[in-house]
Simulated scan of single mutants.
Amino acid sequence: MKNTYTVADRKYLKAFGARVRALRKAAGFSQEDFALEIGLDRTYMGGVERGERNLALLNLRKIACGLKISVAELLVFPAK
């Protein structure tokens, strides 16, 4: 069964993905190297950055730890 998101949900996921991408690039990681560093698949990270994934809490923690920031800081982004 495929998830169905509202337009607002999709915009929010895309805005979050853009935040993750910007922070990853600022930290000097390629998508592949970052995924290896935090123990997630590169294709999963690509889906996150494109706003195609609705993340689980533990994966949010992995991403934040990999970027050396708090989960709260990771979640500060402009919702479009």
Rank of each mutant, 00 (worst) to 15 (best):
A22L: 08
M45A: 08
G39Y: 05
A35V: 03
G51T: 04
G28Y: 02
Q31G: 08
L13R: 14
K2P: 07
E32M: 15
K68H: 14
M45H: 01
K68M: 02
L67F: 07
D33T: 08
A56E: 15
E49H: 09
D33W: 00
A35D: 00
R53E: 03
A72K: 12
V71C: 05
L75V: 03
V76P: 10
L36E: 07
L75K: 08
C65S: 15
T6K: 10
R50Q: 09
S30R: 00
D33E: 13
T6W: 11
A56R: 12
V20W: 00
A56V: 10
V20F: 01
R10T: 09
V7Q: 11
T43Q: 14
F16D: 05
R53W: 00
L74I: 05
A26R: 03
Y44S: 01
R42V: 10
N54S: 12
G39I: 07
D41H: 10
K80T: 12
M1R: 13
C65V: 14
V7R: 12
L57V: 15
G47Q: 09
G46H: 07
G39T: 03
G17Y: 00
V76E: 15
E37T: 11
R53L: 07
K62N: 09
R53F: 02
R50M: 10
A22I: 09
Q31Y: 10
A72N: 10
S70E: 06
L55H: 02
V76N: 15
G51H: 05
E49A: 09
L40E: 02
A15D: 08
L74N: 04
A72L: 02
T4D: 11
S70D: 06
Y5L: 13
A56N: 07
I69P: 03
N54L: 12
P78E: 15
R53S: 05
C65H: 14
L74T: 13
F34Q: 01
T4F: 12
K14W: 07
A18E: 15
V48S: 01
L60M: 10
L58I: 11
A64I: 08
E49M: 11
R53D: 03
A26E: 12
Y44P: 03
K14S: 09
L75N: 15
L55Y: 02
F34P: 02
L57F: 13
D9N: 05
L60I: 01
G47K: 11
R42E: 06
L23V: 12
G39C: 04
K11F: 04
T4N: 13
S30C: 07
E49P: 09
G46I: 01
L57E: 09
E49V: 08
V71L: 08
N59D: 12
G66W: 04
K68D: 15
D41L: 01
R42C: 04
R21M: 03
L74K: 06
R42Y: 00
V71H: 00
S30A: 04
A79F: 06
V7M: 14
F16W: 00
S70K: 06
A8P: 00
